[in-house]
Design a protein around this nucleic acid. Sequence first.
DNA 1: CTCAGAACCTAATGTTATTAGGTAAATTGT
DNA 2: ACAATTTACCTAATAACATTAGGTTCTGAG
Lengths: 221, 221
Amino acid sequence: MANRNHKGNTRTRIIDSARILFAEQGYQKTTVMDISRQAGLSEAALYDHFHGKEDLLLAIPQLWVSELIDDLEEQLFGIQGAYNKLRKYLWWYMRRVEQAPLDAKVVYLFLKTNANFMATEVYSNVKRLYAYLLDIFEEGRAAGEMRPDLNPYVARDLFVGTMDHIVTRWLLKDQSYSLFENLDSLFELLSSAFRPAPAAGADTEPADPGAAGVEGALDRG
Amino acid sequence: MANRNHKGNTRTRIIDSARILFAEQGYQKTTVMDISRQAGLSEAALYDHFHGKEDLLLAIPQLWVSELIDDLEEQLFGIQGAYNKLRKYLWWYMRRVEQAPLDAKVVYLFLKTNANFMATEVYSNVKRLYAYLLDIFEEGRAAGEMRPDLNPYVARDLFVGTMDHIVTRWLLKDQSYSLFENLDSLFELLSSAFRPAPAAGADTEPADPGAAGVEGALDRG
DNA sequence: CTCAGAACCTAATGTTATTAGGTAAATTGT
DNA sequence: ACAATTTACCTAATAACATTAGGTTCTGAG
């Protein structure tokens, strides 16, 4: 018999226990004893696998996020047009969050605010995920689908900020509704932000940037 | 002599010390001893003023946020047109964050993820702050400045999400650049999301909702 | 001028994270 | 096959905090 020498197995078991407990009760209110008990070992044994509680926290979503990276290219492969890619991106991400709410909770609620997060591999992967959007916006602009004066970084902020906001609220409200509610309407709004200002009747190639027109005298900060 | 009986004075001094330390080193890494020492008293004395460390955390931004509420109406008073109000809102908020980065840091990085936050007075004030936007979008739609099919809640998510994203990054990057960089360009993008789809030459009343047109065969989540 | 209570103190107490030091099973080198 | 290591685990400290007990000094009202 003897269940020793699980190798990587135990590590996974600890991570799984921690993920559930952190997502359930929060990082602070979960004790190391809670986790080790749930994983079926002593506190000290946990420290043979992780440097500490925080190290464990950082380890939880590593696999999930790296899988996201791999899946993203896969999912967008073959889709034509910036808006189509954008839409796929949004639906795909929401689905992935819906499928792994615990990982999402750890990332959004406990990791993103953590001081050491920016030094993490998770962080650099998240950045890559978001950076993908820059290419899409560039493509859209180059193809004339999007406004010629579009700043891809600003566009990304708009897109990512909105997405993160939706996800965060959903997580805080304990996934009590569907992430896809209003998503069509949201995407429609986002899309029109990027579309070129249509110059009277045509639906491609607008000439003038600054064609705002509606607002009048605006005050400055 | 005798500096006893400060009454409310000491409470303020504790809050000020905690605000600085939390913003500097984070909530977890700041000890109650750090705070009480900085405020010039013993740990036990601190507990005569606050129920505990978390209670103290929640108390920090209370004044700031309630001042925001009061100031907002003041600032928007007399401004005509939904876009003008929206712009003022954005610039005003960024300015307030810039002026009180420590409070903003506490709210954005330590409070928003806190489980008890939703039961806080700060939370209900933040909600009121955001709810104000709903009125603006309603107004814009009613006046024909904005698209007739605009969902105010979705519009608010777009606006708030983007704003929060910009602010959060700025805070995480230690305020190393100006919050107002690209703000004009950002506002332009946001505005065009809300503007009615101009039906060939006119600038009011587009008939059909689903008038997306650009994207083709889209997959569904 | 007493007395309630405010504001503060030192010194416990309790809870957690983390470490020391050890044991037995498994693995490795010979 | 069998010493020597290494791995995976343990019990029992230790240490860092948050929080509480219980007391002292000052202040101000009656």
